[in-house]
Design a protein around this nucleic acid. Structure first.
Lengths: 117, 117
DNA sequence: CTGTATCCCCCTTGATACTG
DNA sequence: CAGTATCAAGGGGGATACAG
């Protein structure tokens, strides 16, 4: 049994990155999470305005997944007209270091690029 | 002119995350980068074996983009049979903190999940 | 205001075969 | 060994309308 185990068996699925990506990967989730972390509780429309290129379909879908994965919590005020807001959870907040880093790294690249140009 | 500028103009495109994602986003690039950072220079086939679910098409495509973006360098030994290897560049290495964090975060989640279960 | 519902397109991704 | 070429498929994502 153990003779079948060798170092070749250590593949990408063992390193945790795939799991992390499954929860915060994609085009929109990092932006949503970063916004909620930095700016606090926000209403649906505010998030939408922060990410001008996202559609209703994608935003509501991504928010739903974030809520399901426990990174974001949703509060429905049960009003007419509707009022719903979203906050980051502790679990979501634990991703702050990655998001901060991605934000800063991107800005650094912009600066460097402009200098070289 | 300046009266048109307000805080609503601060949108996701200003925060750097989108740029970072454009360079290291997606399903494969973080894994490739992490592997090259942790394990050093690797040949094409080794990377492929580390990520068993990637196809030739996707791997060669993603590697090409990483090389174009300056995160990875490619060395062709011009041999028959071919030998090519890939290394992380300094720019690529500057992403190490994100990748390490994503790796650790994922492993932590696995542990927590197993405990709760 | 906060979403759903529907339609649909294209682009990523996959599978397979093949080459130098 | 390290890819490319080609075809096929699926779903991510967009546009629009509309509902509560």
């Amino acid at each position: 049994m153990s003779e079948d185990i060798n170092f070749e068996d250590y593949t990408s699925s063992h390193c945790g990155i795939e799991l992390t990506l499954s929860v915060m990967g994609g085009k929109w989730k990092p932006l949503i999470l970063w916004f909620l972390i930095k700016k606090g509780t926000k209403r649906y429309g505010e998030i939408r305005r922060f990410i001008p290129t996202v559609t209703n379909k994608m935003l509501s879908q991504q928010l739903k997944e974030l809520v399901n994965d426990g990174l974001v919590s949703r509060k429905d005020y049960k009003q007419i007209p509707p009022k719903v807001d979203y906050s980051i959870t502790d679990k979501g907040k634990s991703l702050q270091p990655v998001l901060d880093f991605m934000c800063i790294w991107g800005l650094e690249q912009t600066k460097t690029f402009n200098k070289v140009k």
